[in-house]
Design a protein around this nucleic acid. Structure first.
Lengths: 238, 238
DNA sequence: TCAAAAGTGTTCGGGATACACCCATGT
DNA sequence: ACATGGGTGTATCCCGAACACTTTTGA
């Protein structure tokens, strides 16, 4: 019997530690941002990293990701969080191997306004200007960006990134920033209004929130329609 | 300082073992198949599983997947193999936790003809008739199928699944089987011939290979075009 | 006054879809 | 003879892309 094709073949080696990092994407109305934090432990104390923690033997992956997320962002009604993949290639701890299972998450940046997250040293960087991070976290961010791009193409993800009321300019910025290309304003609007996802609030923006120009119309998402799409599958494509 | 957001926070716990499974997809000219094998170790000795092995501390994920793959399928010129994600939820070994990092791979079933894989008990099952597997391997197969579907939609993946010479009927079966819907034959051909991916061999099939009807035309893929697409990105969509 | 974003319709072309008949093969 | 799959062309529709001018706001 060939051991290469059997499972379990001999005995497992319990010499691996699990770490979990979060790539938290925010959108400020103009650009996408990623959340970073300075590491407070060796071997990269002080260096910037993604918010991360080690898992214990009992921690479920997704649940731990949610917990870590909520520890940072606070409670949020609709959480978008998803595993990226296992990264096992880079970091070796003196005592053994560490495998990182990063997840990515989307937040409405407005949710941060009343949080104390500044005291931890958390800091947003625009995705095009992410500084050097420790471990392989830059690679993780790159990978997460690819995932984000695919997701934005296939799902009306603005829901989870814009505040309750937003302008079409902000939404268009979101798509252009995520997909790295420009859209014609008229065609963009036409496409949106052909769906039933957008509701005209018949109000004008005051221009205070970033990316909103005073006087432009405000919209909100139609969550009933969105939920319907979740069930029926998405015919939505950018 | 909040431990929830620091990395590394305290010390890692080296009590996890890594396993790696393969979801090997084949296409027999009519339907997609998945490769299974009986487990030869406890705790599920004899039960069907995906081909799998434990990793040692030094094994790279993708490299190990390739090695396992080649141990089963043999050398193959163009290997398509990709990590799915970490599955950490189900199986607990008495000595600690096992995290499985399954990968999926595509093979041309014709490659198996001269291999001795039968002696390991390897067996194909059509994806719609996969029996109960041990651990969480059924869940892994489901996840892999979703990934396969997305990949088939975006890339001319038939390359890695059909033998050198194939009929359009086989190719259409491949798309219909992967995406779970029927295509109009004329439209399907039109779409293919609008690309430059398909080369007419001006030969007729002898009807021996499964899915080939005697007398129908044979084609091959244009690998130069395919490589070009790999670099420039894909405008190919089904 | 100037620059930057918001708002608004029409035209064109290409790709997706729908659709029917004859032929070759193997039963 | 019959059933199954292969091969072929045309008409229609919808979506995406291209394109310009006026207004409001804030610097």
């Amino acid at each position: 019997m060939n051991k290469e094709v059997s499972y379990p073949q001999d005995e497992p080696n319990f010499n691996v530690a699990l770490a979990l990092s979060l790539v938290i994407f925010g959108f400020d109305g103009i650009d996408f941002q990623v959340l970073t934090v300075p590491s407070s432990y060796s071997p990269f104390k002080g260096a910037l990293i993604l918010p991360s923690k080690y898992l214990t033997e009992k921690d479920e992956l997704l649940l731990s990701a949610r917990k870590l997320f909520e520890g940072i962002v606070g409670e949020q009604n609709e959480i978008t969080i998803e595993q990226l993949r296992a990264f096992g290639g880079v970091y070796r701890h003196p005592n053994g191997r560490v495998v990182n299972v990063p997840h990515y998450a989307l937040v409405k940046k407005v949710d941060f306004r009343n949080s104390k997250w500044l005291e931890f040293g958390l800091k947003w960087y625009p995705v095009k200007m992410v500084p050097d991070l420790a471990y392989d976290h830059n690679e993780v961010v790159e990978y997460a960006l690819e995932r984000l791009k695919r997701r934005v193409k296939r799902r009306p993800v603005g829901f989870h990134l814009l505040s309750e009321e937003f302008t079409l300019g902000q939404l268009q910025n979101l798509y252009e920033s995520a997909l790295g290309k420009k859209f014609d304003r008229r065609n963009f609007r036409k496409k949106l209004f052909n769906t039933t996802l957008i509701i005209d609030l018949e109000k004008a923006a005051d221009g205070i929130e970033k990316g909103q120009k005073k006087g432009s119309k405000l919209y909100k998402f139609n969550s009933a329609e969105y939920d319907k799409m979740k069930i029926q599958g998405y015919d939505f494509l950018f």
